[in-house]
Design a protein around this nucleic acid. Structure first.
Length: 258
DNA sequence: ATGTCAGGTCATACCTGA
């Protein structure tokens, strides 16, 4: 079973890229972020035509997350992170998909740091860590996949020194991510490729894609029950080179059985 | 500071968010 995460950067203008990726790479489950579309503008018919059923949480202008599953209904469990009813950003959705519980997240970018946006990122990370801990408690097969906006280590950025003041690489943020891993979650890409330089995002500035000046910020975290069945993980890099590409590439894991 | 996208609006030129 292949489970992927893909920050599409606008599902409206990026629909041809999304449909081509689904057709060519055929993930069983796909977590999408940055729909940048209100709830009623989600292209449910085109996605159904491609063979996927979906749940989504849209928002005007920015944010927005979705879970797609091929030939099976995602059964929604929640459409917000617990802990702050006043947080109205569409950044988290969770569903049971067959035997796997799937959490799809779009963690706040947090720039500029310091500032209120960075404070919001740290609060969101704290709420996420608590929820991740709750999900671990019952031993279920859980995956938390999405755009974390976290560069975990120096191996995950083309030029660490130019990112030291960025909200994606600040020590508090890296520590929060490391604490989540230490609590029992497995960073699937890093588990399969311990030393490799792997990027999932190349911004549109300064020919970063052409220079392979990227970041690894899209992550798939596995609970112990799923980590035990991890057989492969990777990035569909070529998608970043397609016409009208998102600035992120789809990132995936292969789980044995099912 | 720069750079390039998408989506939005006191709309065909700027704003935010990334």
């Amino acid at each position: 079973m292949k489970i992927a995460t893909f920050n599409v950067n606008g599902i409206g203008s990026r629909l041809p890229v999304l449909l081509r990726w689904l057709a060519e790479f055929k993930p069983d489950i796909a977590c999408l972020q940055e729909l940048k579309a209100p709830q009623e503008k989600f292209p449910v018919a085109a996605i159904a035509e491609a063979g996927y059923r979906a749940i989504w949480h849209g928002q005007k202008s920015f944010n927005g997350v979705a879970i797609l599953a091929r030939g099976i209904d995602p059964v929604e469990r929640r459409r917000a992170l617990p802990g702050d009813p006043e947080d109205l950003h569409s950044r988290y959705i969770e569903a049971q998909v067959g035997e796997v519980l799937v959490g799809c997240l779009y963690l706040p970018n947090g720039n500029p740091a310091p500032g209120p946006k960075f404070d919001y990122k740290l609060r969101w990370l704290d709420r996420f860590a608590k929820h991740a801990g709750d999900l671990l408690a019952n031993g279920a097969s859980v995956i938390l996949a999405g755009d974390y906006n976290v560069i975990p280590t120096e191996l995950d950025v083309y030029k660490p020194e130019s990112w030291v003041d960025d909200a994606l690489f600040r020590p508090e943020v890296r520590q929060a991510f490391a604490d989540i891993l230490a609590s029992g979650w497995t960073d699937a890409l890093r588990k399969v490729h311990p030393q490799a330089r792997i990027y999932t995002f190349w911004d549109y500035f300064r020919n970063h894609w052409q220079r392979d000046a990227g970041l690894r910020i899209d992550h798939l975290l596995l609970s112990p029950a799923l980590a035990a069945r991890l057989v492969a993980a990777g990035v569909d890099r070529e998608v970043r080179g397609w016409e009208k590409a998102s600035d992120h590439a789809p990132t995936w894991v292969e789980i044995a059985g099912a």
